[in-house]
């Protein structure tokens, strides 16, 4: 069902953990839907010098968060903003159709961390980052109930 890359990131997640003195923390998803992603970033001179994640969710949720951290680590804030869920899916060699929402969640988790970083620095994040969609299960009853 999953590609080798997905299984590799799932079994050997990169950058898993927390950053105690993070400059930005973002969390998306919810327990009811079965996935939560939390991203921590450390920023120096507009470059993401460190990133860590914690994820509750299925194999692809863990794999997408793991690879997403690799794709932004050492990159500028602007580059991180450009990271799309499509790029994440490609980097993993594809995801089953019903797992694409995991990649969207990973993209949103990074954006949420960036927003938090801007907010902490007195900058309104919305014009830069846009709106964060907490959950893309627009057809998910349990999400719309909340």
């Amino acid at each position: 069902m999953y590609t080798e890359q997905v299984m590799d990131h799932f079994m050997n997640p990169r950058n898993m953990g927390e950053i105690a003195d993070a400059d930005g923390i973002g969390e998306v998803g919810n327990a009811k839907c079965g996935d939560i992603m939390k991203m921590y970033i450390k920023v120096k001179d507009s470059v993401i010098v460190d990133v860590k994640f914690k994820t509750y969710g299925c194999g692809s949720a863990i794999a997408t968060s793991s690879i997403a951290t690799e794709m932004i680590k050492g990159h500028t804030l602007n580059e991180a903003l450009q990271l799309s869920n499509k790029a994440v899916v490609e980097a993993l060699g594809g995801l089953p159709a019903h797992k694409i929402h995991c990649s969207v969640l990973a993209e949103q988790a990074i954006k949420a961390a960036l927003s938090d970083y801007y907010r902490k620095n007195g900058i309104d994040p919305e014009p830069i980052v846009g709106k964060i969609t907490e959950c893309d299960h627009d057809h998910c009853e349990s999400c719309s109930e909340d």
Binding site: M7, F10, M11, C33, G34, G57, C58, G59, A61, I62, H98, K99, H137, H139, C140, E141, S142
Partner: peptide, 26 residues
């Protein structure tokens, strides 16, 4: 699902009622 994948890695075949394994969102 992640529990099943890890068990599978250890050679154990089992099942779950999570949304991810039920193929739906619930």
């Amino acid at each position: 699902e992640s529990l099943l994948l890890m068990l599978d890695f250890k050679g154990i075949s089992a099942s779950s009622g999570s949304a991810c394994t039920s193929g739906s969102l619930d």
